[in-house]
Every structure is written in structure tokens, then in C-alpha cells.
């Protein structure tokens, strides 16, 4: 009893001292709670389906940010990882009889392999050259898919694979929990020692080398990690849709990811995740004006990028929080003095 009380008090003090002091943290906690509680209020399959897909694509967008935002390796062919994850999971399930909890991580590992295969030739490339080269890889794989239709199903894809879970609600929870977990892991990675090196590689690769860091190893690590997370999202997608088709490898899929990430704000992890949660449902609701859908979508993206070049969520965060000029700790924008060092905030 006393122990329970102790932990309750501890939880309370953490919430009070660590969460409530910053609005962005409150928002994150509310976001977690909201997603976990949605099925209690609605069992509407259409809504749950949208949120499930949104979660799957949120993983994909965050994994792009890890590679291209943080490490600066512009990947315009991120659909490759998604597609490899989806096809690996589907093939393993259909021909290997492995259930989804096995095929999804294995699909992630397949995408790691893809990350290494494209990472090695891309090590020497930078900027536009890297972007164009990576753009080609999913197209090459799509060519292979069409070349071996008796294995891959060609244009129709591999259908009839096992469902992710028994019900829509279970599907929803799997996607949401995996998304929250993986995005937290990605955010932790970027906040770690490895994250500092990723940042530094983006800024100046040569200077990282002369600091004694094996940049080849870290770039390949970034490709593999990003591939792993994207591959998992691809695997979940395949089992949720019960089909792995060539649409997962399309160029428009690669661009979609880039648009999401830039819209939300790159080099943040939370930006791309938030952006998918805004843009993907928006795209669905715009179905009511089917003929103007793409146009409206483009207009929204353009407006945001014109007025918030650092992305929507960075912009929002800077509106509600201020950085202390002295100790660089973030504070709620309504404060006049820093909560740590009491320096004036203006």
C-alpha cells in the first residue's frame, strides 16, 4: 500500500514538474492518451481504418526524417523500404506460413538489407545526385516485381495474406502502439550520442571524419535504421490491407513521404508524425470533393510551406514556447523569466 502511494506520488511529481511545465509535452501526452482511448468512444470501422493507416504512415514519415532530415542523406526513394517490408512480409506469410508477428519484423530486416544495398553505392553521393539515385531504386524493384509475376503477383500484387489481428479494434491498437513505440525509439536515437553524430554528418561530413568518426559506418547505420522502421510500417500495411502490391513502390509514395516530413518540419521526428495525422485524414475527408481533392491538398501544403518554412509543428512550437537566451532551456511563451535560470526571456 505504502509502495503504491509512493509511486503514485512520484508519478504525480513527474507530471507536475516535467510535463505540465511545457505545453509541447502536454500536447504529446494528450496525443498518446487520445490515440489509446479512441476505440472506447467509437467503433466506427471507417474512422478506425483511417487512424490505423495514419499510424502506419506516421512511422514511415518519421523514418524518412531519421535518414534524410537528421543525417542529411536525401532519400527520394523511401518507398523502396516500405515496399520491401510489405513484399517480404507478404511472401513470408504466403509461402512460409509465418504469422504477422514474425513476418513484420522480418520484413523490417529485409528493408535493412535493402538499406545496406542502396547505402553502399550511395556513400559517395551527395545532394541532388543522391536524391536522383535513390529515386531510381524503387523503380528498379518495381521492374523486378513485374518481371516475375508468378512470385510477386505482378500488377495485382500478393493478395490473400493473413490479417494483422482478429478485429478492426485490435488492428488499430497494434498499429497505434507500434507507431508510438517506434517513434519514441526514433526520437531517443536522435537524442543520443549517435544522434549527435547524425546531426554532424548532415552539417559537414569531412569535419566529422577529421574528428575521428567512421562516417561510413554511421551513414550505413542511418540507412539501416531508417530502412528497418520503414520496413516494419510496410509489413504492417501489407497485413492490414491483406495485399502487397506495386503501389507501395510508386514514385508518388516516395514523394508523399517527403511532403509529409517537410510539411511537419524536418529534423524533429514529431513534425512528420504530426503532419501525417493532419494530412492523411484531410486527404480522406477531401474525398467529398473528389475532383478538387489533389488541388486542395496542394494548396494546403503550399500555404503552410510559404508561411512556415520550418514546418507546421516547429512553427506552432515556437509560438507556444520560448527558448531562454541564456541557458537554452525551453519555457512556455507566457513566462517572463526562465524557469531554470530566471534570466529574462525577451
Amino acid at each position: 500500500m505504502a509502495l503504491i502511494l509512493f509511486y503514485l506520488r512520484k508519478l504525480f511529481s513527474v507530471i507536475k514538474n516535467e510535463v505540465l511545465v511545457l505545453p509541447s509535452r502536454v500536447v504529446v501526452v494528450l496525443f498518446f492518451l487520445f490515440l489509446l482511448l479512441v476505440p472506447l468512444f467509437t467503433k466506427d470501422t471507417y474512422l478506425l481504418r483511417i487512424f490505423t493507416l495514419t499510424s502506419i504512415f506516421a512511422i514511415l514519415a518519421a523514418s524518412w526524417d531519421l535518414l534524410s532530415g537528421f543525417t542529411g542523406q536525401m532519400n527520394f526513394g523511401h518507398a523502396l523500404f516500405f515496399g520491401v517490408g510489405a513484399y517480404s512480409a507478404a511472401l513470408l506469410n504466403k509461402y512460409g506460413g509465418i504469422p504477422p508477428w514474425g513476418t513484420v519484423p522480418l520484413g523490417g530486416l529485409g528493408a535493412v538489407l535493402a538499406g545496406l544495398i542502396i547505402g553502399i553505392p550511395c556513400l559517395r553521393l551527395r545532394g541532388t545526385y543522391l536524391a536522383l539515385t535513390t529515386l531510381a531504386f524503387p523503380i528498379i524493384l518495381m521492374g523486378l516485381v513485374f518481371a516475375f509475376p508468378n512470385i510477386t503477383g505482378g500488377e495485382l500484387g500478393i493478395s490473400g495474406i493473413a490479417r494483422l489481428a482478429g478485429s478492426r479494434v485490435a488492428d488499430y491498437y497494434i498499429a497505434v502502439v507500434v507507431m508510438l513505440g517506434l517513434c519514441t525509439i526514433m526520437w531517443k536515437i536522435t537524442d543520443s550520442k549517435t544522434g549527435i553524430i547524425f546531426h554532424a554528418i548532415r552539417e559537414d561530413e569531412l569535419a566529422v571524419r577529421t574528428s575521428g568518426i567512421n562516417t561510413t559506418r554511421y551513414k550505413l547505420l542511418a540507412f539501416s535504421l531508417s530502412g528497418f522502421f520503414a520496413g516494419i510500417s510496410g509489413g504492417i500495411y501489407a497485413h492490414f490491407m491483406r495485399i502487397a502490391g506495386p503501389s507501395t513502390l510508386e514514385v508518388s509514395m516516395s514523394f508523399q513521404v517527403v511532403i509529409w516530413a517537410i510539411f511537419g518540419g524536418i529534423v524533429t521526428i514529431y513534425g512528420p508524425v504530426g503532419a501525417v495525422f493532419v494530412l492523411f485524414p484531410l486527404m480522406e475527408f477531401l474525398r467529398f470533393w473528389q475532383e478538387y481533392r489533389i488541388l486542395m491538398f496542394a494548396a494546403v501544403v503550399l500555404l503552410i510551406l510559404l508561411y512556415m518554412p520550418d514546418g507546421l509543428f516547429r512553427w506552432l512550437r515556437d509560438k507556444i514556447e520560448k527558448e531562454c537566451p541564456r541557458c537554452k532551456i525551453r519555457n512556455i511563451a507566457t513566462r517572463d523569466t526562465c524557469r531554470i535560470c530566471t534570466a529574462s526571456l525577451d
Binding site: K193, I196, I197, H199, A200, E203, L206, G212, I213
Partner: peptide, 28 residues
């Protein structure tokens, strides 16, 4: 170890992080 004539800092990183990269080298 070497320095660059036309300095090459990691511009968008805090100064401490600039140095931490070197501290993360196997030698350090």
C-alpha cells in the same frame, strides 16, 4: 588531429555538441 584554415564548424549545432563529436571518436 587537424584544424581547417577556413573553419568548418557544425553550424546548426551548439558549440558543446561540436566538440562532443570529437569526444565520441574511439581514441577519445
Amino acid at each position: 588531429a587537424c584544424t581547417f584554415q577556413n573553419m568548418r564548424p557544425f553550424r546548426r549545432l551548439p558549440i558543446i555538441a561540436n566538440v562532443m563529436v570529437s569526444c565520441l571518436s574511439p581514441r577519445a
